[in-house]
Design a protein around this nucleic acid. Structure first.
Lengths: 221, 221
DNA sequence: ATTAATATTTAGCTTTGTCTAAAATAAAAG
DNA sequence: CTTTTATTTTAGACAAAGCTAAATATTAAT
């Protein structure tokens, strides 16, 4: 069975690879884990010995099939717990990340199977991220960054790619959540900010930084 | 914040003291924790430095007020999670202990407050053990060991003082659970076993060992 | 009241996961 | 194509939590 630390490293490596990198660099892992690069190197060696990652020294790491299974399983647990916290216990979407970080490390197949059933086998977590199934399969939906989306097209918010409570609270205060219908009404090239419009609310200006965390899909009624 | 190990030691010390001892002996703690006595000594020193236990070398430990608060809080979390697992997820009472041992170490005041509400502020866990309130107060109910109870008096099972899945499964198979109405119909002095009768079932013989894990209270309709 | 038995503590070592500083390698720049 | 810069790895230490073996207290027994 994996230690808490091993699980967190695997999850981090998975996230880096998911974001499009061919290999996860030691430094990127260390930054994400808030540890020294040397610590990351040590852990990489251990995970490589356990056949969970492939490691070509100085050239980053990749996940083996087994490593991928473990990583998606942790993410599956994290996201299911987030659904539980929001849907059943009434947490806000901005309050669940830290607690789910702990809950994701509970070891019990049966618990997750039953939790999944209890929640109605949800496909997405409260931030719109897909929940891997028990076999580690993730359904990827077509979505685009709001930041880059054409003007004057009605879209639906499909996910938000940032877990910081501050950002999530900010979006909540603007009435923006997963499922919101919005439309870009204007784009300001000088700072890449955009103006959006939602039903029953005044136009809102979003900075590029914020618009780069929001994913949308075309709205089909 | 306490480490996992510190929490487990505190819980163990609490349990030993709860069972009537004036002080918890190093050895008793080590046995309960499945560690060497030397390890227990080390941890006792650490907990004493943190003012969570009082330690007179060679004469066992007691809990300070703060140590007691911490211990009851862990037990509170353990028992609330057990209720959740049984009531909401459909676990059997014999399947929850191990998972709750993990869940009890999740750190989040808010989580426990909301879980408690979600479960309807239960007073007892699935084994009939009282759930301490948020201030660490435990409601102790009058109950007696079935083993020592008079014959031919109708009683209600109030709790079962053993968490081993084997025993709990055994009781389940006999139809004995918290709330069951039973009556001792005969007592066999030579081995202290007893014969009990429950509505709609044949008489059952319970060994002294089993009858010593079952607590009952007089049945008042 | 000694001695024997039991319980507890101390001493020294191990593993896990972390760190800093130094050495080695790869990539970028001139 | 060499030098500078950035990244990665190695070496050596440290804290937490555990262990065994040896030393020390306490309790029980003669």
């Amino acid at each position: 069975m994996l230690s808490l630390s091993e699980e967190n490293y695997l999850k981090t490596i998975y996230k880096i690879l998911e974001s499009g990198q061919a290999a996860a660099q030691t430094n990127a892992i260390a930054v994400e884990m808030n540890t020294a690069a040397a610590s990351a190197t040590d852990m990489i060696k251990k995970l490589a010995e356990k056949q969970l990652v492939g490691h070509k020294p100085y050239h980053g790491v990749t996940l083996t099939i087994e490593g991928q299974m473990q990583a998606t399983n942790i993410i599956r647990k994290h996201r299911l717990w987030e659904v539980f916290l929001v849907e059943k216990l009434g947490f806000g979407w901005d309050e669940v990340h830290e607690v789910a970080e702990q809950l994701e490390h509970i070891h019990s197949e049966k618990l997750i199977r039953k939790l999944d059933q209890y929640l109605g086998m949800p496909k997405y977590d409260p931030h719109g991220d897909p929940i891997p199934d028990a076999n580690g399969r993730v359904t990827i939906i077509a979505q685009d960054l709001l930041l880059h989306f054409p003007i004057n097209v009605k879209v639906e918010v499909s996910s938000v790619s940032n877990q910081s409570p501050e950002l999530l609270q900010y979006l909540k205060s603007k009435g923006i959540k997963v499922g919101s219908k919005i439309e870009i009404t204007e784009r300001f090239p000088f700072d890449q900010s955009i103006e959006i419009k939602m039903k029953n609310s005044d136009p809102i200006i979003l900075t590029a930084q914020v618009a780069a965390t929001i994913y949308v899909k075309p709205y089909v009624k």
